[in-house]
Computed example of a mutant assay.
Amino acid sequence: MTDLAGKYKTYRLISPFKNRIFTSDPANVEYILKTNFENYGKGEYNYYILKDLLGDGIFTVDGDKWREQRKLSSHDFSTRVLRDFSSVVFRKNAAKFANILSEAVKSNKIVDIQVSP
């Protein structure tokens, strides 16, 4: 799929039971997710296969239910909440990294920072 998206910005996969269109073209993505969002719902098929796992949440519903879920979740994705969360995550990971470097210095070891421990 990644190779196809690299070669063709928008393409269609046809199978006996379902046809799907995929796009990685920024103009198409903006059109679908912003400009003409109302015409590109997730549909009943996706709701049916995801409802047991995700319920009537923002990732499964369309229309008025989606708007209600979007309004509720928008508070969780405010700039302040995301900034505060990312600060906590950064501090936690920075502390881990500092400990790894400290241990390496104590034992006189080389640390490859491009490889996850």
Rank of each mutant, 00 (worst) to 15 (best):
P117H: 04
D56G: 07
L4N: 07
L82V: 15
K65P: 06
T2M: 07
D76Y: 12
I32R: 03
F85E: 13
F17A: 01
V111C: 02
T2A: 10
T35R: 02
K34N: 14
S102G: 06
I100A: 10
V81C: 13
S87I: 05
D52G: 05
I21H: 12
I58A: 12
N19M: 04
A95C: 03
K7G: 08
K51C: 06
P16N: 04
E44S: 09
R80V: 09
Y11V: 04
G63W: 08
V61Y: 02
L13G: 00
Y8D: 11
A98L: 11
I14Q: 09
D62I: 02
E44V: 08
T79P: 03
D3V: 14
G6S: 10
D112H: 10
E30M: 04
I49C: 01
D56N: 14
Q114F: 03
G63I: 02
G41I: 03
L53N: 01
K109N: 14
G57Q: 05
A94E: 13
K34G: 08
I32V: 15
S78C: 11
R12P: 04
F22R: 01
F90R: 01
D3L: 14
A104W: 04
L13N: 00
K65D: 12
L50E: 11
K109G: 09
N93A: 06
Y31F: 09
G57N: 10
G63Y: 13
K96P: 15
R12G: 00
N39F: 05
D62E: 08
L33G: 09
R12A: 05
K51A: 02
K106Y: 02
S74G: 00
E30H: 14
N99W: 06
P16V: 00
H75T: 11
L101V: 14
T10Y: 12
T60C: 08
I32G: 05
I21G: 06
N99V: 04
L33N: 15
D64H: 00
V88R: 15
S107I: 07
L72T: 06
D62N: 13
E38S: 11
G6E: 13
K71R: 15
A5N: 06
T35E: 04
K96I: 15
T60E: 08
T35P: 01
A104T: 02
T60M: 05
D64M: 03
F22L: 10
S107Y: 11
D76L: 12
I58D: 08
F90D: 01
L54T: 01
K92C: 00
Q114N: 09
D3Q: 14
Y48P: 01
I58L: 13
Y40K: 02
D25C: 02
K109W: 12
N39E: 08
A94N: 06
R67N: 10
L101E: 12
A95P: 00
I110Q: 08
R67P: 07
R20H: 00
S24G: 07
D84L: 09
L50Y: 13
E44W: 11
G6F: 13
D52C: 04
N28E: 14
E44A: 15
D25T: 02
T60P: 01
S74P: 00
Q69R: 11
S74R: 01
P26M: 11
F77E: 04
L101Y: 05
S86R: 10
S116V: 07
Q114S: 05
L33E: 15
N39S: 07
K9S: 11
M1L: 13
Y45T: 01
